[in-house]
């Protein structure tokens, strides 16, 4: 199996600011990798770059066999990004948003029902406009989109944020299931213990690059795992 993600000295710029400053990372297919790092370290940028949303200024970047310097579009149906934003239309209902997302990414519509149920989005909520939903409910919807799309690469940015205990457990279960299904998962999280429990390994990011893990906390993570 070729690796799912290969970044070599990748630089990503926002104007003149380097979001990634020469990041190197390799993730094997089927691996669950936890990205750690302070705010602004570059975790979100790495996930967005993996989704083909950010242009690579220099270096090498391949995701699921697609060279991102050549083509950042063709891989998008195979990856799923859970970002800080939900990519929803406030005026459309929960159900309509999910159906649109599935149609747009050519995923079968039959998966919508089970996915909504899995995330506890049922009843009256289905017809509520997303603009009227709570932050946690919007987060669940974004997760439901991901579940229904069943991507080969899951890019999760703070997946536990804003969720209640039950939903957080669901997230952990979803990651485990995705992995059993052969998908690769990159997950950025500040909840070190929780993330360490579901990840195969953790990677420390600082200043827009992967840095050698600070030994003490990394070992704590391994022990928990």
């Amino acid at each position: 199996m070729p690796p799912a993600v290969v970044f070599i000295e990748a630089v990503v710029l926002a104007g003149r600011f380097p979001l990634l400053s020469g990041l190197s990372l390799e993730v094997a297919t089927g691996e669950v990798v936890h990205l750690r790092g302070a705010n602004g370290a570059g975790k979100t940028s790495l996930l967005r770059a993996c989704a083909g949303l950010l242009p690579i200024a220099s270096g090498r970047a391949e995701v699921l066999g697609h060279d991102l310097l050549v083509d950042r579009v063709s891989l998008r149906r195979a990856v799923g990004l859970l970002g800080h934003a939900g990519f929803h239309y406030e005026e459309l209902s929960v159900r309509d948003n999910l159906r649109f997302a599935l149609r747009a990414s050519r995923a079968p519509l039959e998966r919508a029902g089970p996915a909504l149920e899995r995330l506890g989005l049922t009843g009256r909520l289905l017809d509520t406009p997303v603009g009227a939903c709570s932050a946690g409910q919007r987060r669940r919807l974004a997760l439901a989109v991901l579940v229904a799309r069943a991507p080969r690469l899951w890019l999760l940015d703070e997946p536990h944020a804003g969720l209640d205990a039950e939903a957080r457990a669901t997230v952990d279960a979803l990651v485990a299931e995705a992995r059993v299904g052969g998908a690769t998962v990159l997950l950025a999280s500040h909840e070190l213990e929780r993330a360490a429990a579901i990840a195969d390994r953790s990677v420390e990011i600082a200043g827009g690059r992967v840095v050698p893990a600070a030994t003490d906390s990394a070992e704590v993570g391994c022990d928990v795992a």
């Binding site: 630089v11 003149r16 600011f17 380097p18 400053s21 020469g22 790092g37 302070a38 602004g40 370290a41 600082a206 200043g207 827009g208 690059r209 840095v211 600070a214």
Partner: peptide, 15 residues
């Protein structure tokens, strides 16, 4: 800018 960005790593470690 690249050098500065990379140096953040050391700073956060120190922090």
């Amino acid at each position: 800018a690249l050098a500065e960005r990379r140096a953040e790593a050391g700073m956060s470690r120190a922090g």
